[in-house]
Design a protein around this nucleic acid. Structure first.
Lengths: 199, 199
DNA sequence: GCGGTTATGGACGATGTCGTCAAGAACGCA
DNA sequence: TGCGTTCTTGACGACATCGTCCATAACCGC
């Protein structure tokens, strides 16, 4: 029910969605909607908040696990996002669309989206720290800086995907970003056998 | 006059802007607007097209010049964007906002925004090739791939800035991205004196 | 089964929005 | 100045949208 309303906002944006459309999409009467949520803005805040929570939870889920698989998880997280974002049927991230449309006009949305981005960045940071513990990334690097960069790449892929950039390009961007991460200095003996991804 | 209309769309979005608001902003009567442009959508297409042209032209202008200053130009381009995007008074890129709001619903907008992004990417590619000629970047690297990554970072900074990320973080992202670009292999003699940026 | 309570839904008034149109202003020209 | 042409305008009709309200339906304890 909130899902249907969310999808409606997702597809047509906040300003582009009427309460009648939401009533039709959810099957609820307008009186019920106003009674339960107070109004369009409050309803949207509720939906947007839930969505941010889910997005953060998903990132945390997908990026936690053993140190050994930390780099693999990060790669999969970004690669899947690239594939997803380039799908023409993909509506684009609700978080991104909402931030673009409302962040200047709505303090609640603004604070919520910033918090969500920071939480995702924190999840990436934790994964990068795991990578460092596993020897996949230079331990001298600041994982928060790298995480901020990867989050920016993540959001950039979202934006470019929405504009219609093809999957190959988006995957290539991810690969290039990952290839640019600082590796630990190799001792000569290690340079043959250690696990590396093709890039 | 088109400027005032553009600013109105820029601030309140396509769906959130009424023709009455545009009439008020431009000082023109609604009849004149409809007479001159045909309608809301056509007016927006005109404004959006002009804006894309300007954005591409600006990127080309800022990224062309001598090979010696190619890396400097690229750094300035990205750094200025980071500073700009984090300004709370910054409305956010019209290209980004429009892509987020309309690309699924409007073929004209979709094609125009993709074209603009590709043109900017091309400008970055050309600048990176100049960097390679100047010995700032590994000549074995594919400049188009690097350019795609930098464009993604550019768009990501835009998105994060709109969400309220502070200037320091955005600048740091830019620095990290530039630091991750592949450098040419140094001969031992060069490792002391060649020009490098602090990162 | 029944009275009271709560949830529901669509009609309603007020206002906003789109696109049109006829009245009038501005302009060029003799 | 007088006249015809073009441009401009804000009022207007039709419709969309917001948020409210009350008649009705569903639900609950007894």
């Amino acid at each position: 029910m909130l899902i249907a309303a969310r999808d409606q906002f997702w597809t047509t944006g906040y300003a582009g969605t009427s309460m009648d459309a939401i009533a039709a999409a959810t099957g609820l009467g307008k009186g019920s909607l106003y009674g339960a949520f107070g109004g369009k803005r409050e309803l949207f805040h509720r939906i947007f908040g839930d969505h941010c929570d889910e997005a953060v939870q998903l990132a945390n889920h997908r990026l936690s696990g053993s140190d050994e698989q930390a780099l693999e998880r990060l790669t999969a997280y970004l690669m899947d996002h690239a594939a997803f974002s380039s799908d023409p049927r993909h509506r684009g991230c609700l978080l991104a669309k909402t931030t673009a449309e409302l962040t200047e006009h709505d303090e609640v949305v603004s604070a919520r989206s910033l918090g969500a981005f920071q939480a995702v960045q924190q999840a990436i940071t934790a994964d990068l720290e795991a990578c460092q513990r596993n020897g996949d990334i230079d331990p001298a690097a600041d994982p928060r800086q790298l995480a901020a960069l990867l989050l920016a790449v993540h959001r950039g892929i979202e934006a470019l995907g929405k504009a219609g950039t093809d999957e190959g390009t988006l995957r290539s961007i991810t690969e290039t970003a990952l290839a640019g991460l600082p590796r630990p200095a190799l001792s000569p003996a290690e340079s043959a056998g250690s696990p590396r991804r093709s890039a």
